[in-house]
Design a protein around this nucleic acid. Structure first.
Length: 986
RNA sequence: GCUCGAGUGGCGGAACUGGUAGACGCGCUGGAUUCAAAAUCCAGUUCCUUUGGAGUGUGGGUUCGAUUCCCACCUCGAGUACCA
């Protein structure tokens, strides 16, 4: 009987769906195990073979854990809000919901055909109002919370208000805006409602504020820092400029330290942890306040606060530098310098973020004419502005120590500012000295002779004594902008009252559904797309969304026009899967207490500083609110590597023949080039063409052949076979401009293409669609082959040619169970041979170890070895073939189910217990010892395992080959490691 | 520049805590079967000057023994980028 994979796979996919085989129960005595994939954005292009890699790995693990007796939660859903559907809507007028729905259908079909064990009853979609109700709900919780540094957690805003009412804000230690004036309880009570609301916004964990944002004009929206790559938008590569806008932000900075600390308790890849650590960017140092020298006696003095990691170098300060955007610049610039400074500010403002980043070498700046007083020496220090100081980091001002910082050094050299040396025994005539470990401070009063660490402590101590500084930890992490000027995202549950202050809509009225609009573009007045909605106002009496013309600012108010960013919906979805249809709560406490957290999370490394940082932030917030039992949502995380494509090329000769392009088989060119010869030496066809051309006096290159004479063009990989031979007729059909071309083939008539590994992309014609692979080889072959390609975390090239190996293995395994006449199914009840037992048990051992270590590629090899051995042993015993089916089932579930059924089982193999490994089958009595001489293996010798060291040595020395190796020499030493190796030295 | 990761046959890759380098698969070569092809099966396949020797990016070191550990360097990939 044939291995009819198409039929088998369809049969079992239907079976699993009908029987809901993989539905997870929230009540179970079994131990839980939660395996999660980063959910996909359903793009229009569908899946290519690279996409399912992580899904296959997680599916194998999930299936394995079920065999091991766990209650496994393995859900899937869609991150279905997002830019592509909206861009498509702008171009075509098609509602993004329709496009999204269609794309999801394609995705679902493609996922289903791969045989994943997802519990689809738990599917969520971020664009579904039933789901985003809870995204809005979390937003409201964040709005109603502040971060108390004393308790080091988020608390209800009511507790803050009651403190204000009792004692004002002086004693409050909160993470908040830094421009809050001190007020007493009496003052608080005297404030108007609007004033109170404005103050509270400065404390809330999500807040509305005017801030500098990354505005992308081409996309018509702001972008978060992690959505910008190299100064341009991550999607589309459009320029980004700095702009001040009133936006919702998330006070993620409150969690900076905890986000850093939490990394230590999760088992995540080190590079991912590193990039989060860098992104958070903790640095320890000191805040130092300098005071400006009044421009004339009696004039004002201004404090300039700076952050420095090197307070030990404070005596090396020879100037200060402010960011051009610094608010003090206009106040302190002297009349003489005004023109210069303004010209400089204007010039820097014009430079885009990208120019500024691309050009870090040009040193520019301007002197303000003002001076600050050095806190210790009381000497005047000139104040400069320069765009190497960033407005967004620290305080936007630095104390410049040219001898200890290369940027300050370069700036000082460029503007001829003195560079005092405060390091003992260090030459600074060429460059700054930044080695902390070797630092000994000099010329620095009370810091003289101190090494770095001690000097830092002493400097901070002295600054505190003066009241001009303190030790401080600074983070690079910024609060996250949460507004997007887009249509296809979650609407905010927010309306604006008569004072223009934001108000939350009560939880019981959620979800606030996305309104219909006739255009998905910004309005003519520049408002976000929701500005086009005509029914987008909140009636506080009816508690519903009503038409805009009813707005009266007493009972009916305008709603927020921005929508939430892409990461909003994905920041808690892993918890929602635990109880996805709950309409009363985001999830029940029973569900969250049973499932707790994600045990294994698999996805791409591109989410390192976006999704994975925001999710951790929300999880910690939810933890503070007592909603979740764990403050890290995923115990273990694996980044699967990318699958790249193997592009194919044909080479078009620079010379035409009779006005036709000439395309030459790769190995002809290679031969000619490697022998420094001519093309015509390697092809008769070319030879006669050359003669013909020459006889007509058409100057043909006589020089030696080189690759420069050929233009490589991409060929669709489906036109190339496993031996890199081109289907020439297919190619001519595909590319009509080559229909008449001359193809110079090998002697045997084949035509070879060149190959190169590149990213899989349509334009390179190297995209392989899993649909075609499933059709030709089946999902089980595809699953096995994807795992077989190499380690999960590594990136590796796809080459369809190799899949025959995996497919051949399945056929061979099928035959093992079909040893009857004419290939009918047949297993015997006979006791397996000793060898077969051994083969089975070493396979059990290796496969279990491999899965636990996520080394899926090696277990595929192990299966191949196992089936090869059992085939040559002619094993068809049920006692071996039954456990083998279970071993294989996580990898190739369809064939395993089919064989399991044939073996006489009526229940799915999914729940069958994983075979137990038994050591006794592997016990050996003899070992084939490798005998090495000076570490090199020269021959093998089989010896009983119970020999003593001395007996082994004697046996080896007595062997004729030993004497032959030694050639009369006496060995200095013989190393015997029983059961392992013998090494003769000498 | 900085931080990570990786360099093993024609290719993807194996090699557990230092102990037979190249498992397994692709490709290639030869053979069987076939009218022929596909499919299948068998044998071989790191390199070289082949009764032997060399060999895991390069150079050194530790060791009886190094792909594995240490030092220096080279190359490639990923992330990040004036962060004070």
């Amino acid at each position: 009987m044939q291995y009819n994979f198409n039929e088998i796979e369809a049969k079992w996919q239907k079976y699993w769906a009908d029987k809901q085989t993989f539905k997870a129960e929230n009540n179970s005595d079994k131990e839980k195990f939660y395996v999660l994939d980063m959910f996909p954005y359903p793009s229009g292009a569908g899946l290519h073979v690279g996409h399912p890699l992580g899904y296959i790995a997680s599916d194998i693990y999930a299936r394995y854990k079920r065999h091991k007796g766990y209650n496994v939660l393995h859900p899937q859903g869609y991150d279905s809000f997002g830019l592509p559907a909206e861009q498509y809507a702008i171009q075509t007028g098609q509602h993004p919901a329709i496009t999204t729905e269609e794309n999801i259908k394609t995705y679902r079909r493609q996922l289903d055909q791969l045989g994943f064990s997802f519990d689809w009853s738990r599917e969520v979609r971020t664009s579904d109002p039933k789901y985003y109700k809870w995204t809005q709900w979390i937003f409201i919780q964040l709005f109603n919370s502040w971060y108390n540094k004393t308790t080091d957690k988020a608390e209800d805003i009511k507790s803050l208000i009651s403190v204000f009412e009792k004692e004002g804000n002086a004693g409050v230690d909160a993470v908040c805006d830094d421009d809050i004036a001190v007020f007493s309880a009496e003052e608080w009570k005297a404030y108007s409602n609007k004033e109170q609301q404005e103050i509270l916004l400065k404390y809330r964990l999500t807040y509305l504020a005017e801030s500098e944002v990354n505005w992308c004009p081409a996309l018509g929206t702001v972008l978060a820092n992690d959505e910008i790559v190299n100064g341009v938008s991550e999607r589309g590569g459009h320029p980004v400029i700095r702009k001040k806008m009133t936006q919702w932000s998330m006070r993620i900075t409150a969690y900076a330290q905890r986000l850093l600390d939490g990394l230590e308790k999760v088992d995540w890849p080190q590079p991912l942890k590193d990039s989060q650590t860098n992104w958070i960017g903790r640095s320890e140092g000191a805040a130092v306040t300098f005071y400006t020298v009044p421009s004339a006696p009696g004039e004002k003095t201004y404090p300039i606060e700076v952050f420095t990691t090197r307070p030990d170098t404070i005596f090396g300060v020879s100037f200060m530098t402010l960011a051009p955007e610094h608010e003090l610049v206009s106040k302190i610039t002297t009349p003489e310098q005004k023109a210069t400074v303004e010209a400089y500010i204007e010039a820097t403002a014009k430079r885009s973020e990208r120019d500024r980043m691309a050009d870090v070498k040009t040193i520019s700046g301007a002197f303000t004419g003002a001076y600050a007083e050095h806190p210790f020496t009381k000497e005047p220090v000139p104040i400069w502005i320069g765009d190497y100081v960033l407005a967004g980091y620290g305080t936007g001002a630095v104390m410049s120590v040219p001898c200890g910082d290369q940027r300050d050094y370069d700036f000082a050299k460029h503007f001829n500012i003195p560079i005092p040396n405060i390091f003992e025994g260090v030459d600074i005539t060429e460059e700054a000295f930044a080695d902390k470990e070797k630092t000994i401070i000099a010329n620095s009063d009370f810091l003289n002779g101190l090494p770095y660490k001690k000097a830092v402590k002493r400097a901070i101590f002295e600054l505190e004594k003066l009241g001009q500084g303190e030790g401080k930890v600074n983070y690079r992490l910024r609060d996250a902008v949460f507004s997007r000027q887009r249509y296809w995202g979650e609407p905010f549950p927010v309306y604006y009252d008569a004072d223009g202050m934001p108000q939350m809509i009560s939880e019981e009225h959620l979800p606030i559904k996305l309104p219909e609009v006739d255009k998905y573009l910004p309005t003519e007045t520049g408002e976000p797309p929701l500005g086009n909605a005509t029914v987008w106002a909140w009636d506080t009496e009816k508690n519903e969304v009503v038409a805009n013309d009813k707005i009266n600012n007493t009972t009916v108010f305008p709603l927020e026009l921005n929508t939430m960013p892409g990461w909003a919906g994905s920041s808690q979805y892993f918890n929602r899967y635990m109880d996805p249809h709950n309409e009363d709560e985001i999830f029940s406490q029973e569900a969250i207490n049973y499932w707790q957290d994600v045990d294994l999370y698999i996805g791409g490394s591109e989410h390192a500083t976006g999704h994975l940082l925001y999710s951790r932030f929300w999880q910690k917030f939810m933890f503070d609110k007592g909603l979740v039992p764990k403050d890290e949502f995923a115990k273990k995380l694996i980044n699967q590597g990318m699958i790249t494509g193997t592009s194919a090329f044909v080479y078009v000769w620079s010379q035409k023949y009779q006005d036709k392009p000439v395309v030459v088989s790769k190995s002809i060119i290679e031969k000619a080039i490697s022998n420094n010869g001519f093309l015509f030496d390697y092809s008769k066809e070319l030879d006669s063409m050359f003669s013909d051309l020459r006889s007509k006096g058409e100057g043909v290159t006589q020089g030696e052949t080189s690759w420069e004479h050929f233009n490589p063009i991409h060929v669709d990989v489906s036109l190339v076979n496993a031996s890199d031979e081109l289907d020439v007729e297919g190619f001519k059909e595909w590319r009509s401009e080559y229909a008449e071309a001359v193809f110079i083939t090998e002697e045997d008539g084949t035509f070879k293409v060149g190959r190169e590994v590149e990213k899989m992309s349509k334009s390179k014609y190297n995209v392989v669609n899993p649909d075609a692979i499933c059709e030709e080889y089946g999902a089980d072959s595809l699953r096995l082959y994807e795992m077989f390609l190499g380690p999960l975390e590594q990136s590796k090239p796809w080459n369809t040619a190799g899949i025959t190996g995996a497919h051949g293995f399945l056929k061979k395994m099928w035959r093992l169970y079909h040893s009857g006449a004419n290939g009918t199914f047949e297993v015997s009840e006979d006791e397996p041979s000793k060898d077969s037992w051994k083969t089975l048990h070493k396979t059990i051992k290796k496969v279990a170890e491999d899965i636990e270590n996520f080394s899926f590629n090696t277990s595929v090899s192990t299966f191949m070895i196992c089936v090869n051995e059992l085939s040559s042993q002619k094993c068809n015993s049920r006692a071996v073939l039954e456990p083998l089916a279970i071993l294989v089932s996580p990898y190739a579930p369809h064939i395993a189910e089919e064989l399991w059924e044939k073996l006489g089982h009526s229940e799915s193999i999914a729940a069958a217990p994983f075979p137990e490994f038994e050591e006794k089958y592997l016990v050996e009595s003899a070992k084939e010892y490798p005998i090495s001489f000076n570490g090199k293996m020269r021959f093998k010798l089989e010896l009983p395992l119970d020999l003593s060291k001395e007996e082994i040595e004697a046996a080896v020395m007595a062997h004729e080959k030993t004497q032959q190796q030694l050639q009369g020499r006496t060995p200095k030493k013989v190393i015997v490691v029983p059961g392992k190796i013998v090494n003769v030295v000498g």
